[in-house]
Design a protein around this nucleic acid. Sequence first.
RNA 1: GUGCCCUUAGCUCAAUUGGCAGAGCGCCUGACUGUGGCUCAGGAGGUCACGGGUUCGAGACCCGUAGGGCACCCCA
Length: 434
Amino acid sequence: MRFKSVKGMQDILPEAEPYWRQVTATVQDTARRFGFEQISTPVLESTALFSRGVGEDTDIVSKEMYTFTDRAREGEQGESLTLRPEFTAGVMRAYIEHGMSSLPQPQKLYSVGPLFRREKPQKGRYRQLHQFNAEIIGSADPVADFEILLLSYSIYMELGLKNLRFQINSTGDPDCKPKYVAALKEYLAPYADKLAPTDRDRLQRNPLRVLDSKERETLPYLENAPHIIDYLNDDCRNHFHELLGYLDAAGIAYSINHRLVRGLDYYTKTVFELWGEGLGAQAALCGGGRYDGLVELLGGSPTPGVGFATGLERIIMSMQDAGIQPATLERPDYFIAYHGEAAKREAVKLITTLRMAGVGARVAFGGRSLKAQLKDADRMRCRYVLIIGEDELAGHTVALRDLSKSEQSSLPMDQVVNALKQRGHMAECEKRVD
RNA sequence: GUGCCCUUAGCUCAAUUGGCAGAGCGCCUGACUGUGGCUCAGGAGGUCACGGGUUCGAGACCCGUAGGGCACCCCA
C-alpha cells in the first residue's frame, strides 16, 4: 500500500523552502526590532485550556479540534489532550505558569509554528497550518494595540505585499458590550423570521455573530443595524480613538468595519483583520485584537493583553500571487568528481578535509562515468568541479574546472584547501521559477 | 459539516461512438571506454485514485468510497 499525507496536511518541499525561509526570517527579525522575544510552547495542551480560553461556543473548539485521550496509568482515566488550534491560550498559560507577571511589564512575546484545525481543506485552508503570533501582555495602553497593528503592517511591507488595508472595530468591554448586544437583539428581533436559519440560531446563542453574516437573506437587515462604537463607554471609546489617532499619525490606512466582530470569545475593545487579494474566500491574512479578560479567565491575576496572528501559508500564496521572488538560498559551489577506485578514496579524503576547513562542497556518489558526474555537477548548479583521476593522483594535483567558463586548470593537492577558502565557496543559486 | 466540479507515468496532459494505455518535460544509459550545457538514439517508469456494477469487451457508462479544487459555514 502507498501512504499518503493525512488529509489537509501537506509536505513543504525543498522548492518552497526559499519562501519559508524568507517569511520566517522576516517575521522574526521584524518582531525582534520591535522588542519582542520568542516563546515556544508545546503543540499539545490540556483540552480544557482551549475550551476555557478560546470559548466553548466557538467553531474552533466545538468542531475543529484534534482531541484525544492520553494513555492512562492502570486504574486511572487518561488525560484529554488537544493539538493546539491557536497560539494565544498556550502563551497565556505559560505566562501564568512561569510567573511572568513579575517580569518587567509588558511582556512582548512572539511564536512561530504549526497549528491544527480539523476543517474541510481548500485553498489557503489546511488542517495543519503555520502561523506567526505576537502578544503584548500586561499593558492596557492603546500604544500596545498600535504596536501590534504596526508590527503586522511592517511585516507585510517588508515582504513586499502592498495594497493591504486594515479593517478595525471595537467590541467594547464587559461593561458596555452587553448594552450593545441588547440593542442589537432588540433591533433584529422584528426581522428574526426573515433571517437566514444559521443567523436565527446565532441571534439566540451569540447575537454579535449575526453581524458577521454573509448570508444573502440577512444582509439587508444589517444595513441599518446599530453600531457598537455608538454604545462604547468612555474608557472604550477613548481607547478606540486614541488608537485611531496613532494610525492616522503613522499614515496607515484602515477602514472602520462596524460588522467586524471576530469569532473568538476572548476579544475586548480592539479587533482587526487585514485582507489580501488572490486568496479566494480565504482572504484574511491576519487577525487579532485585545483580550483584557483572558489571563484572569485562565486563572491568573487580571492582566490586559493584545495580539495578532498571521497565516504563513497565506502570506506565501500572496507573495506568489504578487510575483514576489524570495531570496535565493546558498548552496555549495564545489563538486568533487573522480575516475577510478584509488581516485574515489582520494576524493573522499579531500571532501573531508574541505568540510573540516569549513568549505562547502559535494562529492559524486556511485560509480558513474565522469561524464555523468560532470552532468550532475551542472544540474546541481555547482560552479566548479574538482576532478581527481589517475593523472592527478600520479602528479599529486587536482584539476579545477570552471563550468561557467569551460576553463580548466591544475592545482597542487596540498594547496587546494587554502585556494578554495580564499575564493569563497558558497553561491546563491540562480533564480528559479517555482 | 453541506453543495458543485475534478482524479490517466515523478510533472503537465492526450486517448474519436465502449475495442492493443500514449506524448512532452523530467529521470537513466549510450553516441564521446577521463570532461557538463546543445543534439541524436535507446531505456526505465502505469493497481488509468480505490471498491463494486453493466458489457463479449470499461481509462471512458452506473453506484459507492477516498483525495483534491471551488463555494457556503468559519477562519490564518
